[in-house]
Amino acid sequence: MLDDGGPYWTAPLPIDRKDLAPSIRREIDRQAERKSFKSYVVQIYEEPAGKPTGMFEIAFNPKSHMACAIYEAETEAERSSQRVVMETDPLWFSASDPEDATDVFFQTLGACAGET
């Protein structure tokens, strides 16, 4: 979690593999060590007392130190008042543990958005 203002996030919370987004499950199924992946969700907050504004879904392999993650957020559709869930494509990267995977993924998303 960052110390200099939002965003804030929870520790990675273990979830069942079946609860991961289909896009991550497809990525994992292509891996030789697919049974070694552990699944996590991390809730993202803009304000500490606010409600979640998004989440990371992370699959982490402790043997290979590889992770696959997506970011999901609910938003309003442009030309209607309907809420829709937006999600990034799965991204692969190396990490030392689920907490490191969260940090690396956050930094990568910031770099992709042009923030450093």
Rank of each mutant, 00 (worst) to 15 (best):
A21K: 07
L13C: 02
E76T: 12
E46P: 00
A49G: 08
S96I: 12
F106G: 05
P14K: 12
M66L: 11
W92H: 11
F106H: 09
Q82N: 06
C112P: 02
M86H: 02
L109N: 03
E33M: 14
E46H: 09
E27L: 06
I70G: 03
P22G: 13
L2G: 04
K51V: 03
E72S: 13
T53P: 00
A21F: 04
P98C: 11
E115S: 08
L20C: 12
A49D: 14
E74I: 07
V42C: 02
I28E: 14
L91A: 11
E78S: 10
G110F: 00
G54H: 07
L13D: 12
A73K: 03
S81Y: 11
G50P: 03
I70N: 02
F93G: 12
T75R: 08
P22I: 15
E74Q: 09
A21E: 09
Q82L: 10
D97H: 12
Q31P: 00
P48D: 01
Y45L: 07
A69N: 08
P62F: 15
R34S: 15
L109G: 02
G114Q: 08
S80L: 07
S23K: 14
M55L: 04
M1F: 05
E46F: 04
Y40L: 05
Q107R: 13
Q31A: 14
E74C: 01
E47G: 00
E74F: 01
K18Y: 04
E47K: 12
T108C: 02
S39E: 09
D4G: 07
T53C: 03
D89F: 06
E99P: 05
M1P: 00
V85Q: 10
L91S: 09
G114I: 04
I24A: 02
A111N: 06
A111Q: 07
M55E: 05
T53H: 00
E115I: 04
P62N: 14
D19L: 13
L20F: 11
S64R: 13
S80T: 15
G114M: 04
S39W: 10
P52W: 00
A113P: 01
E74A: 05
D103F: 03
K38H: 08
R30D: 14
A77Q: 09
I58F: 06
P22S: 14
F37L: 14
S23H: 10
L20A: 11
G50Y: 05
L91N: 04
L13P: 00
R34I: 06
R17I: 14
E115L: 06
E47P: 00
P48H: 03
H65Y: 11
D100F: 06
P48S: 01
W92S: 04
E78F: 07
G50V: 05
S36M: 15
K38I: 08
T88Q: 07
W92F: 14
P14G: 05
V104D: 07
F60K: 13
I70F: 09
L13I: 08
E72F: 00
E87P: 00
N61R: 14
D103C: 00
F93E: 10
S96E: 13
R79A: 07
S80V: 11
A95F: 06
P98I: 15
V42A: 07
A77F: 01
E78R: 03
S81E: 08
V42L: 04
M86W: 03
E115N: 09
R79I: 05
E87V: 06
S39G: 05
N61Y: 10
K51L: 04
P22H: 15
D89C: 02
G114H: 12
P98D: 10
K35Q: 15
T102N: 04
S36C: 11
